[in-house]
Design a protein around this nucleic acid. Structure first.
Lengths: 468, 468
DNA sequence: GGGTATTTGTCCGTATGTATG
DNA sequence: TCATACATACGGACAAATACC
């Protein structure tokens, strides 16, 4: 009985320890838990229910004192023999209505989604604790209007993080905090002026592409090789700005080596007013090879705009991103007269500031890196058994892989077959901003949100159905 | 490495397991412990440090989960190969520059600010309670990606509120949640298409004006009389869209009567593709007269876009606004393919949902209405004693008043004299998007942030210094 | 070379201090 | 003051690997 799942409601009306107590008592009375049966250990149950062990302890204590269970030190808790008592307590059970979406959705049993985080990956308790601290300490002050760029505290924390972890040397005053990359890109578009010709890698991160397109921007697609964007091609487009993801290109997954980075910087520095937008969206997760500082760290001439986010590394719903502007552009931004208010609530800013400042972020990243490396290695192991079907790339970083079929399977057919088997995979063609004429044969598999067990099951199925 | 001696301080400030963790992590990062090296066993280290084994276990556990070390059961713990993160040991320290504004700011003893809320006006305890509930109840779910328009729950709550309090009849699916009006205006600009000619009242809410201007929008200023925007003039401009604040025009403070509203709706309905953007920013605060439903409530043809916010009614730092789009535009928005993610964190959305759903918002508004009515009445009393100096208007709603000098004082001079006396008041000319040729003679006084005592003192001073 | 003592990671229940309302 | 919940720290029991006789 280690899979005990107790539905907890923390509306404050019924204490949690009481709910646990009630539930277990009921199970014993109904006979679902039999005499001698072992209860889950306090640690295990606490972990499963995402609460403190002491809370479980309190529930067990009460059961103990009422004779429902006995405790064998260093062994566990066991259900006692309850004799001579007659129970007839029938509890009414309420079930939640399945929402309509849920009814129409269950086409996919597995989803190799490209966003989202590992289940249980969000550092709940810490976040909750910090949230409580912030709300009780800061008082009214936090609900007055704040700095339009974001509070100094979080900007400093981000600057320190960028310095030590990404090699980016910037002043807090160069940083702008905003609710998501989409928003910051819109802001950037205003700051840079509306006549920019922006080059992008093809395929690329579609959200950024559409952001810019819908703002009325002219986008010039540029091809890429194994080292990243092709500089020669970039030069030919006549673009004055380029949007790149050097640390882990999305979706192709290549890491831009130092040499190419230097070429890119040279491109930007060779003409006045050229800018590089460096989207460093998931640089936090690397599993192999030398860490390469962000492009922005090598920037001497102030032509790199750095974009980073907590949405990928912490949780998608933490909609906080940051942008480092070169001094010249920050001046332009301030000249706009603070016309935009900051889009992130001050409480969230303060929580994040503390999260970074107290080292929680570093620890969280380390933990998640270990978690993702596990999944990554598992994926690689599964894929190695499929080498007659496909080759893979984009490994060693990020949380997704690129598969290229070598058995003649097309992207379309692969996606279709996977769908029939209840597995969602993503075709590379979806991310092209300039469609290729020839048939595509690559798919993307994100593994962040998948449980290890599901990865194994799904990969086994894929191996079967992609056989030709 | 069995001679590991870790200097432990047991002053209770840093937990012991944490000190051990920090120490070892540091050794590994500095390279003093190399990959593959064996750590002392938990028992040995515990003995050496004279602490419990479990304490060492906790430290090792954390190092384990973060991937610094690996555990081989029955053998020992070993240092892992740490790759991926870029370490720069030296920490950089940033200090906040005392911003120039702060240095030059303390000129003012009183500030009749036009934004901000009453001191103590934010319902702290409730907010904190809800925040705690949300964070402990919702668990992980809340940190996965949510609905791009905002969670259904808050959209439903807003729809219900708008229906009952503002007479706006809309479906939750017509609502888009966003971080601030600025953001929603940018979004709207994308949805409406970039060739719109937008008319605005003159003077108007500058932030909205600059948002649109910087997006590259063509803005046509339109004059207004005591009833609001002049329809004839609007017609002449050739605009296809108009931005208005019918319930309390900023900054002039007039309330658009029913007749004018109908004229405006007629204007919009008379030509295909005409839209009215109704900014209902502070309709919550009315002190007199019949409440007039929002323009959107009379809209039969689907040509009104409604903008509302919690930034004014709750607190500036609660950056949550909402937009109600007519069905046709919602379709256009969805056709854009959800390219924008929602900009408000899901926790904040959930908190607000409960805040509305449990009736806290209604109670809060009632309370604040009473608070502001007090201040409002106090202002009016003070101003009546200044009737030889100025007339006032814009009363009965909102949290600011408009003063018009009748003793020949100019805006410029009035602002200057007030500044000398340590009082900040705001000239109407600042809010004009088309400057007037003749000398201005109106100023704006916001009373939301002022304590009653300060209002009395400041108004008394103003009476003296504005005497001619 | 096979039994045995020792070492080791792992899991267990327990106790205490602290923060919050 | 008390109930609730969490963080920290303790020491015992067990099974598997290892070292030793």
């Amino acid at each position: 009985m280690n899979d005990l799942m107790i539905p907890l409601k923390e509306d404050g009306r019924i204490p949690m320890y009481r709910q646990i107590y009630d539930y277990i008592k009921n199970e014993i009375q109904k006979g679902k838990m039999k005499a001698g049966e072992k209860l889950p250990s306090s640690r295990l149950l606490a972990k499963n229910l995402c609460i403190s062990r002491s809370t479980v302890d309190m529930a067990y204590d009460q059961l103990l004192s009422e004779g429902y269970i006995e405790s064998l030190p260093c062994k566990g808790y066991y259900v006692c023999r309850m004799e001579g008592l007659y129970f007839s307590i029938e509890k009414k059970v309420f079930t939640e209505k399945t929402s309509e979406q849920k009814v129409s959705a269950p086409v996919y049993r597995w989803d190799f989604a490209l966003n989202g985080i590992a289940p249980g990956g969000f550092p709940h308790n810490i976040w909750r604790k910090l949230s409580r601290e912030v709300l009780s300490q800061e008082g009214d002050r936090l609900f007055q209007l704040g700095d339009p760029c974001g509070e100094f505290g979080i900007r400093r924390a981000v600057a320190e993080y960028l310095h030590s972890a990404r090699g980016v040397d910037c002043d807090p005053d160069q940083i702008i905090i905003g609710a998501g990359n989409d928003y910051l890109l819109m802001l950037l578009w205003v700051i840079l002026g509306k006549n920019r010709k922006i080059a992008m890698e093809n395929p690329t991160y579609l959200s950024a592409y559409y952001d810019l397109i819908h703002m009325g921007c002219q986008i010039l697609p540029v091809g890429q090789d194994s080292q990243g964007i092709r500089i020669e091609e970039l030069e030919k487009t006549g673009a004055d700005t380029v949007y790149v993801m050097p640390s882990h290109q999305f979706p192709m997954g290549m890491v831009m080596p130092l040499a190419r980075r230097m070429e890119l910087l040279k491109w930007a520095g060779s003409r006045e007013g050229r800018y590089i937008i460096e989207d460093d969206y998931d640089s936090e997760f690397r599993y192999k090879g030398q860490p390469i500082p962000a492009l922005s760290g090598f920037d001497q001439k102030g032509c790199v705009i750095y974009l980073g986010t907590f949405s990928k590394s912490l949780a998608p719903s933490v909609r906080v991103s940051y942008m480092v502007l070169p001094p010249a552009l920050i001046k332009d931004y301030l000249a706009l007269g603070h016309l935009f208010s900051v889009t992130v609530s001050r409480t969230d800013q303060k929580i994040l500031e503390m999260f970074l400042g107290e080292g929680h972020y570093e620890r969280h990243l380390n933990r998640m890196r270990a978690v993702y490396k596990n999944k990554h290695d598992l994926m690689v192991r599964c894929l190695k058994e499929m080498s007659h079907i496909c080759a893979f790339s984009g490994e060693n970083a990020g949380v997704h892989l690129v598969l290229k079929f070598c058995n003649g399977l097309t992207e379309k057919e692969a996606v279709r077959r996977a769908k029939e088997a209840g597995i969602k995979v993503y075709g590379v063609s979806e991310y092209r901003i300039q469609k290729s004429e020839k048939e595509e044969n690559m798919v993307l598999l994100g593994y962040a949100t998948m449980e290890d067990k599901d990865i194994e099951e799904a990969m086994k199925k894929l191996k079967e159905i992609w056989e030709i």
